[in-house]
């Protein structure tokens, strides 16, 4: 895990994440078909597309849960294509998959211990309680019994515990009430302000676009649009969702 918590962000020339012509999938099922994509440092990149387009598969390929069948994955200058997921994570890659990335059978405190991954338990608890006092009150409670919003806050803590990471977030607002969604998106902003680069997948495309500086649209495993977030009209985006983009 990146411990270079320098106040001034490092000047990096290479992008945070770079995919070069990546094909990837599950067993015989190919999902990504030759995807190339770049996530710049210290900013938010949105990854949009209809369900089944391959967004989650792309994030899993970057974090190492899936190995690509073709192409290369680079994270901050290092070619990590052959690295295990845990090695990538120790180098500052933080993937928060869809659907409450927490250990439901562990307590909140134990989840934070896992997230600290060898770092100080007390620090992690203090940071979490400061960011979300509600977590601090429920340290001994089993994480599976938290509300959906609290579970998501706990999952996102991993991106917040360490500065200067490459964060991949998959559908953080899924199934949450609008008022909680506001909190979650606000928190994502805080995370980038700590120097982390963010690749964001979210079904609330308009919100994601409002935050992001760059955007990629995937459909059926191919990039069908890439550009600045402001260039993509909402109606145009919906058409791409409906197909034939």
């Amino acid at each position: 895990m990146s411990t270079t918590a320098a106040a001034a962000p490092l000047v990096r020339t290479a992008p945070a994440v770079e995919l070069v012509d990546v094909c990837s999938g599950y067993g015989a099922t190919q999902v990504l078909r030759g995807v190339s994509l770049t996530v710049p440092e210290s900013s938010i990149t949105a990854l949009l597309g209809p369900n089944g387009a391959g967004k989650s598969t792309l994030l899993k390929t970057v974090s190492g849960l899936i190995r690509p069948t073709r192409g290369a994955v680079r994270v901050r200058d290092a070619d990590v294509t052959r690295w295990s997921a845990n090695r990538r994570a120790r180098r500052g890659l933080c993937h928060i998959p869809e659907g409450r990335a927490i250990f439901r059978n562990l307590t909140v405190r134990e989840n934070l211990v896992m997230q600290a991954n060898g770092g100080s338990e007390a620090d992690a608890i203090e940071k979490a309680s400061t960011a979300f006092p509600v977590l601090g009150k429920r340290l001994g409670q089993s994480a599976g019994t938290l509300s959906g919003g609290e579970q998501q806050m706990l999952a996102l803590m991993r991106a917040y515990l360490h500065n200067d990471q490459v964060v991949l977030v998959d559908e953080p607002s899924l199934g949450l009430a609008p008022i909680i969604v506001d909190v979650i998106f606000e928190f994502l902003h805080t995370i980038t302000q700590q120097g982390s680069a963010l690749l964001l997948v979210d079904q609330f495309a308009t919100r994601a676009l409002a935050m992001a500086s760059a955007v990629y649209v995937l459909n059926r495993g191919e990039v069908v649009f890439q550009g600045k977030a402001g260039e993509l009209e909402r109606s145009e985006l919906f058409q791409r969702y409906l197909g034939d983009g």
Binding site: M1, A85, N86, I102, F103, M114, N117
Partner: peptide, 21 residues
């Protein structure tokens, strides 16, 4: 012990957190 129970719950998540399942 926490890590062992975490592996029971979700080995992939343990992996992307940076511990080797």
């Amino acid at each position: 012990g926490i890590a062992m129970r975490a592996v029971v719950g979700d080995p992939d998540l343990v992996d992307i957190i940076g511990a080797n399942p």
